[in-house]
Design a protein around this nucleic acid. Structure first.
Length: 472
RNA sequence: GGCUUGGUGGCAGAGUGGUUAUGCAGAGGACUGCAAAUCCUUGUAUGCCGGUUCGAUUCCGACCCAAGCCUCCA
């Protein structure tokens, strides 16, 4: 099936043509591991996951690389900026290395909870200092660097004729004085490749280099590690939309002089998950984690379902009201599937119908990841009267693989919970209630139902009797 | 200020040059002593102003508003 993706470089939805047939290599910017990743961060990782699942469903092999940024970078190119890693270490009274490990693992565990497949490679910046230094040396040889004494090695953006092409903005269009200027930089857009350690403070993370002790600039790791794990040219580079103008622009600047243009064939950018009143941020206490959602009683799959209803290029408003709606929608879907499973239909799978609907499901998601439309097709499929139950269940297995919603798993759990036999005293109460109903003593019947309810069971009337289901 | 995206029903959020998804919520009905579940039916929207067109929510332009980047950020 023809895959189409919006390419930020050309600002168009394009047919995807892989470098190697039936194989895709892609790099998605990963987390800076100084704190928990909030659900906004997770939306980006979820999008990478959907991109990957879409390719897998289309028969591709996938090499997915996600970096772990564990080097502390200054929050600006100034010496006065804060270092997030060092700040996190101070906050928790841990070494920067322990902070990195702790939050890398918590990020992975949140990804697991959301059923996000692990990337093929998750290289850490601190494990690739050598590669980063080598990259600077290559740029140095080509004449793209200059040193600001006592500060670092910088990239001279005026040396690259098409600098800024990804963001559609040239040097002269940037607003002068909009940010604090480093007076020693040659151009407003120049950025650090290597920063020297400050002389007055001992950094926990620093390395030797041909230019002096210090640490790499924050754009460098992505160039160095993507080349190492994906080769000099690869298919797709993804990241949050805020990376277009600076981070990805600078990655291109570092890479294309060395490997030749185009370095990356398709640039795909994810829009943010917004709060009603602005962006999600840790400082304002408005960030939620996946584990936080679970503590509030939500199935992480409800959040996944919510994300699937939107489109990756569209900012999405997050509110508990909309998460509730998604949770209800997801639960209804699981209910329907559990009913299909319980039907025990032994008809054979209709292969023609299976193929037809398989393609119907795969088509919209292959067209620039229109997951919402795929969800619509799934709803249509569930409602469709001409598809028999075994065919529907086979299609749902495919849907689970494609969308990662764990529908079959939840449906089975639901059925298991419903088939659990109630303890004798609950059975007895339910039997008494049935008697009360027979005697038309509805007051007593309702009282008994309340009793059963508070004991953790739900009694429902079914034709010819009653059913006891343990409350979830 | 510049560059880039967008503005759709009560909420979230798709598609589409002419009959406007889907989910949740709402309303009515079937079923039930009442519930629950399920099923059926159903209302409500395309920021504003122009233009192109037989016809625009869809194309074009201006404006207004929002978001992203220009400063660490998914």
């Amino acid at each position: 099936m023809q895959i189409r993706l919006y390419n930020t470089m050309t600002r168009k939805v394009e047919d995807f043509v892989p470098i190697t047939p039936n194989h895709v290599g892609f790099y998605g910017c990963g987390p800076t591991v100084y704190w928990d990743q909030h659900i906004g961060n997770m939306r980006a990782f979820f999008n990478n996951d959907m991109l990957k699942r879409m390719f897998l469903a289309n028969g591709y092999t996938v090499n997915h690389v996600m970096n772990i940024t564990d080097v502390g970078h200054l929050t600006s190119d100034e010496d006065t900026g804060e270092d997030k890693m060092e700040k996190g270490a101070a906050r928790e009274n841990l070494s920067v290395w322990d902070v990195a490990n702790k939050y890398m693992n918590s990020c992975f565990s949140d990804m697991d909870l959301l059923n996000i497949m692990r990337p093929t490679h998750t290289p850490r910046a601190t494990d690739h200092i050598k590669e980063q230094i080598e990259l600077i040396q290559k740029l140095e040889k080509l004449g793209f660097t200059y040193e600001i004494p006592g500060d670092g090695i910088y990239y001279d953006t005026s040396k690259l004729h098409d600098y800024g092409k990804l963001g559609g903005q040239n040097l002269s269009e940037l607003r002068g004085g909009a940010r604090i200027e480093n007076n020693n930089k040659r151009n407003i857009t120049d950025f650090a490749l290597w920063k020297f350690s400050p002389t007055d403070v001992k950094r926990q993370m620093e390395w030797d280099s041909p230019w002096g002790v210090g640490f790499p600039g924050w754009h460098l790791e992505c160039s160095a590690m993507s080349m190492k794990y994906l080769g000099n040219h690869f298919d797709i580079h993804t990241g949050g939309q805020e990376h277009i103008k600076v981070h990805h622009t600078n990655e291109i600047a570092q890479s294309e002089p060395i490997v030749g243009a185009p370095w990356v064939h398709y640039w795909v950018h994810w829009a943010w998950l917004m709060l009603k009143d602005g962006k999600m941020s840790k400082s304002s206490g408005t960030s939620y984690t996946v584990r936080g959602l679970i503590e509030r009683g939500y199935d992480p799959m409800a959040f996944r379902y919510l994300l699937l209803q939107g489109h990756y290029r569209q900012p999405m408003d997050f509110a508990f009201e909309s998460l509730d709606a998604a949770a209800a929608g997801y639960k209804n879907m699981v209910r329907k599937i559990a009913d299909l499973m319980a039907a025990g239909d032994t008809e054979p799978v209709n292969q023609d119908l299976y193929n037809e609907w398989h393609d119907k499901i795969l088509t919209p998601i292959s067209d620039n990841l229109k997951t919402a439309e795929t969800l619509v097709v799934v709803q249509d499929m569930l409602k469709n009267q001409t598809i028999n139950t075994p065919t529907k269940l086979a299609l749902l297995d495919f849907v689970d693989e494609l969308l990662g919603l764990q529908l079959a798993d939840r449906a089975k759990k639901l059925l298991a919970a419903e088939s659990e036999t109630a303890p004798a005293e609950i059975q007895e109460l339910a039997a008494k209630r049935a008697d009360a109903k027979k005697n038309r003593d509805f007051a007593l019947a309702d009282e008994l139902r309340a009793k059963i309810d508070s004991a953790g069971w739900t009694v429902t009337d079914i034709p010819g009797g009653f059913k006891l289901v343990k409350k979830q």
